[in-house]
Amino acid sequence: MRQKAIPEGHQPAPPVPPGSGPDDALILWMLSLTSTERLAVAQGFVDSTYALRNGQRS
């Protein structure tokens, strides 16, 4: 199937914003993890946050 030519100067439409509700894909990914892995995800988040707040870079 041939693609339509994009007119010069055409700005692509902004992506449709996702719904404002919870992200099912993220929840399902989290649910696929073991408890140990879930806690590791949370630990990674707090470690990164504290590092940023303390001015460190990974």
């Binding site: 993220l26 990914w29 989290m30 993890l33 408890s35 806690l39 949370a42 988040f45 707090v46 946050t49």
Partner: peptide, 14 residues
């Protein structure tokens, strides 16, 4: 929050 995380909720807590 940690209970919620262990239950699989993608939330953060400190």
């Amino acid at each position: 929050g940690v209970a919620a995380i262990l239950e699989g909720a993608p939330v953060s807590t400190f």
